[in-house]
Design a binder for these strands. Structure first.
Length: 210
DNA sequence: ACATTAAGTGATT
DNA sequence: AATCACTTAATGT
């Protein structure tokens, strides 16, 4: 296990840092559908995604959810950085899209490593950057794109991170992610099917070409 | 065979 | 694009 972890981090961090990560990190498995964090949770750790995919959703006080982006292997959650600097609670929900493996690291390590290791600073800044970009993209699609385009982006992103061409999902689930109604999704998907871009089955969407 | 859940559709706002 | 009201289809018991 430790060797696997070392290989995983070998190309981005110094030996010494990897040793510390292996030592203090707590590895956790998340089954598909399980929550890594929910809105309102107090966060005292930050996660490295070793394996799997998480979807990151923003949620308002009435329980309306909207997907922001997906996290992949090697990613960490930028919201955690924000949360780590203040006493605020989590502003997002992270749900395992498939069975996933995460290494959790206490936030006090975070401060130490920021000072001590350049590679860690670089990593944090870079992933912060990446998340910010995706966030802006998410805001853009939310604010300016129509539902059909939002759906296209959603399907595209989802097959991308999962590395599949067939999604095992329901129209209702997509509707929740995009914060719309099932009927709307069903109709738009039907349209895409008629255009020959996808094939619809029960609980399954085969993507041919987007 | 029956119940449950997912998906399709016309009409209305 | 949302909602309603209903139909049809797939799937589990």
């Amino acid at each position: 296990m430790k060797e696997k972890l070392k290989d995983f981090f070998a190309h981005q961090f110094e030996e010494e840092l990897i040793d510390e990560i292996v030592e203090v990190g707590e590895i956790k498995f998340y089954r598909e559908g399980e929550h890594l964090m929910s809105v309102g949770d107090k966060i005292d750790f930050f996660p490295f995604l070793l394996r799997g995919v998480f979807k990151i959703l923003s949620e308002d006080d009435k329980g309306n959810e909207v997907i922001m982006y997906f996290l992949e292997r090697g990613d960490t959650c930028a919201c955690v950085f924000i949360n780590s600097l203040s006493t605020e609670k989590s502003c997002i929900r992270a749900v395992a899209e498939i069975d996933s493996e995460v290494i959790l690291i206490k936030l006090n390590q975070f401060d130490k490593w920021m000072v001590k290791y350049k590679s860690f600073r670089d990593y944090v800044l870079e992933s912060y950057n990446l998340r910010l970009k995706e966030m802006i993209e998410a805001i853009d699609t939310l604010a300016f794109k129509k539902m059909d385009q939002r759906l296209l982006k959603y399907l595209h992103d989802r097959i991308q991170v999962l590395r599949v061409t067939t999604l095992n999902t329901t129209h209702q689930e997509i509707a929740y992610d995009l914060n719309t109604s099932r009927v709307v999704i069903s109709r738009l998907l039907k349209q895409l099917e008629n255009e020959g871009k996808i094939i619809l089955k029960r609980n399954r969407i085969e993507i041919l070409n987007l």
